[in-house]
Amino acid sequence: MRKCFLTGLLVLVPLAITVWVLNIIIGTLDQSLLFVPERWQPRTLVGFDIPGFGAILTILIVFVVGLLANNLIGNYVLKLWEKLLHRIPVVSSLYGSVKQVSDTLFSSSGNAFRKAVLIPYPHANSYTIGFLTGAPGGDVKNHLVGDYVSVYVPTTPNPTSGFFLMMARENVVELDMSVDAALKYIVSMGVVAPE
């Protein structure tokens, strides 16, 4: 009886958490309908709310903004908008930081999470998985003797926090593992081993 109960939990808990997270995301995106005039909202047009309509609208808005920003006029307007934001004291530092991080993470030519690596951490006799993010730059590289690489070591089970390390390339072993597989391995605390 206990075995059947635990098996049921193993099946239902991931499903319930997935549905819960999707519900929160779609509910949050549906709140974007608050910016749509009342006469264009689904409740007015068809007589009832349509779950997920806000999510579709948000995706459509993001796509149209991306489409506009990719042409010459849109690119010019975007640069003017960024100049304006950089002149506002508090907004300038916040927007600049978020923009740098998002450019690094979402850029197709960015350096974020290029390769999964195995490194000795926190001491020489224990190892952890990290992600190669590039090479040290600026004045930092002037003070490092030898060939160094930048490595991000995520924490388990929450990979959004972690440690940034600059390590000698000779101490970093590149793994034959995709970044997705390495992240699953880290988040599952080693339970979901890569194939």
Rank of each mutant, 00 (worst) to 15 (best):
I17R: 02
L45W: 05
H86A: 15
K79F: 07
I61H: 10
G137D: 01
W81E: 03
V140A: 08
M189K: 14
L80N: 04
H86V: 03
G96R: 08
L85H: 13
V91M: 13
V145H: 05
R43I: 05
Q100K: 11
V36A: 09
T18C: 14
F131S: 07
A55H: 07
V151M: 03
L12K: 00
L34F: 13
V117W: 02
L10Q: 10
I56F: 11
R169S: 14
Y152N: 08
V191R: 09
L60C: 13
L175Q: 07
G47C: 07
G47T: 00
G96C: 03
N23G: 15
R2N: 15
Q100V: 05
E174C: 03
K79H: 12
K141W: 07
G138R: 06
P159E: 00
V140W: 01
G8L: 13
I24L: 06
R39P: 07
Y95H: 13
E195G: 10
L118K: 12
F5C: 03
L85V: 13
R2L: 15
V149A: 06
S178Q: 05
E170I: 05
L132S: 01
I26M: 06
T7A: 15
C4N: 14
S161L: 00
S126Y: 00
V11A: 14
V191Q: 07
R169K: 13
T104R: 04
E195K: 10
L85R: 09
T58N: 08
F131W: 10
D103R: 12
L105A: 14
Y121D: 01
L34M: 11
H123V: 03
W40R: 01
V98C: 07
A168K: 14
D147N: 10
G110K: 09
V179P: 02
A55S: 14
T160Q: 06
S97R: 11
T128C: 11
S92L: 06
L183I: 07
L9H: 04
V36G: 01
N171M: 05
V11T: 11
T155L: 12
A124H: 00
I129Y: 02
K99N: 13
G137Y: 01
I50E: 03
I129Q: 05
L29F: 10
P194G: 02
L9Q: 06
F48G: 08
R169G: 02
D176H: 06
L15S: 12
R39L: 13
F35T: 14
A124P: 01
G8E: 09
F106L: 12
P42D: 03
S178C: 06
I56Q: 02
L60M: 12
L78S: 11
L57G: 08
L80K: 09
I119L: 09
K141R: 14
A193W: 02
A16F: 12
I119W: 02
Y185G: 04
D147H: 04
G190D: 03
G8A: 08
V98R: 08
E38F: 05
L57Q: 02
K184E: 13
Y127D: 04
S102I: 08
V62R: 03
E170Q: 11
P157E: 06
V19L: 14
R114Q: 14
K3D: 12
P136H: 02
